[in-house]
């Protein structure tokens, strides 16, 4: 780990100025310090934003918008009554992430910027020339060892031969299904980015560029439109270990239904691409369809036909289709 300087920022503007000079934002540091210890990054300076006033969670007076500050911790997000009531998928996704200890520090701003869990990328290799294998995200142009490896967490969509990694976050899946919008501030002011477009898959950004956030831009918070589908949302996380484990696949579903008929549906799959994978055609096709397992499963099976599993992972599209189906049934109150 390289030496670095550390300073607390007293305003977003001060932090953004520091970032323009090469400093890196430090929020909960649950990702950042790991990267520094593994040799993934070696920032010369940290600007600590954890003291800024960006942790509020509130429902707007008209009841149509939920706002969540970037510094809200995952435990705060998961237990806040407005989130639980108006965007339960986000609350569940936050509480199913990491462990209680981590969730007390991990912020929703940092969470969406976490990087892949590809074990090749996460190799501990502090020091020149210590990387044991090619990884384009670690050493640009070195290659992608996971492409050929017996590694079962590769992407199904959007990958290229340069990188097959996935974005492992739970909350991003919920945020994408909820049509959430991030408010970000840079040297030139504040702008908004839709969370379903926030991340880039490899076909869009190559191995290196993972989000539409410009260097030095800070996430201030998220705006979540509240509708019946958001209030009826659910999150399903499928993982081999019951807690403290990333998803093998996950699904966030926003569902509005009545009398056994789907009125509106939004679905995002998690851990199947380097971004949350919305299924727009399926959403449209199922609007007005019967809310029963057979109908939904058939639509999901069709949606997963485009998946490109790596050799040895042929079971994964089926798992993703099943998970999406189950999540819809959960949101519909048909299974627990």
């Amino acid at each position: 780990m390289e030496n670095f300087t550390y300073a607390r920022a007293d305003s977003p503007e001060a932090a953004i100025r520091a970032a323009a000079d090469g400093a890196v934002f430090a929020a909960g540091t649950t990702e950042l310090v790991n990267w520094m210890r593994l040799g993934i990054v070696a920032p010369p300076a940290l600007t600590d934003i954890s003291g800024l006033d960006l942790a509020a969670i509130a429902l707007a007076d008209d009841g149509a918008t939920l706002t969540v500050g970037a510094l809200a911790t995952l435990n705060a997000v998961g237990t806040a009554p407005p989130v639980r009531t108006h965007a339960p998928a986000l609350a569940e996704a936050a509480l199913k992430a990491a462990s209680p200890q981590l969730r007390n520090r991990a912020t929703l701003g940092g969470n969406v910027l976490q990087r892949t869990r590809c074990p090749y990328f996460r190799a501990e290799a502090a020091g020149e020339g210590r990387m044991p294998w090619p990884c384009n995200k670690r050493v640009a142009g070195s290659g992608c060892v996971a492409r050929e490896a017996p590694f079962d967490r590769a992407a199904l969509f959007g990958w290229t031969d340069d990188c097959v990694a996935t974005q492992p976050s739970d909350p991003v899946v919920a945020l994408a299904a909820l049509d959430a919008v991030a408010r970000v501030q840079g040297p030139d002011g504040i702008r908004e980015v839709a969370m379903r477009d926030f991340h880039l898959d490899q076909q869009e950004g190559g191995a290196a560029t993972e989000t539409r956030l410009a260097p030095g831009e800070m996430i201030l918070g998220y705006r979540i439109p509240v509708d019946a589908a958001a209030r009826g949302s659910a999150y399903l996380k499928v993982r081999e270990r019951e807690s403290y484990e990333y998803a093998m696949v996950s699904a966030a579903v926003c569902l509005d239904h009545a009398d056994g008929t789907i009125r509106a549906l939004r679905i995002a799959l998690g851990s199947v691409a380097q971004k949350p994978w919305r299924l727009p055609q399926t959403e449209a096709a199922l609007a007005g369809a019967a809310l029963d397992e057979e109908t939904v499963q058939a639509a999901m099976d069709a949606a997963l036909r485009d998946a490109r599993p790596l050799p040895g992972q042929g079971w994964k599209p089926r798992l993703a289709a099943n998970a999406a189906t189950r999540a819809v049934m959960m949101a519909g109150g048909i299974v627990r």
Partner: peptide, 9 residues
């Protein structure tokens, strides 16, 4: 990256 059982399992 190496999975050991947790209480929830």
């Amino acid at each position: 990256g190496v999975h050991l059982p947790v209480n929830a399992d």
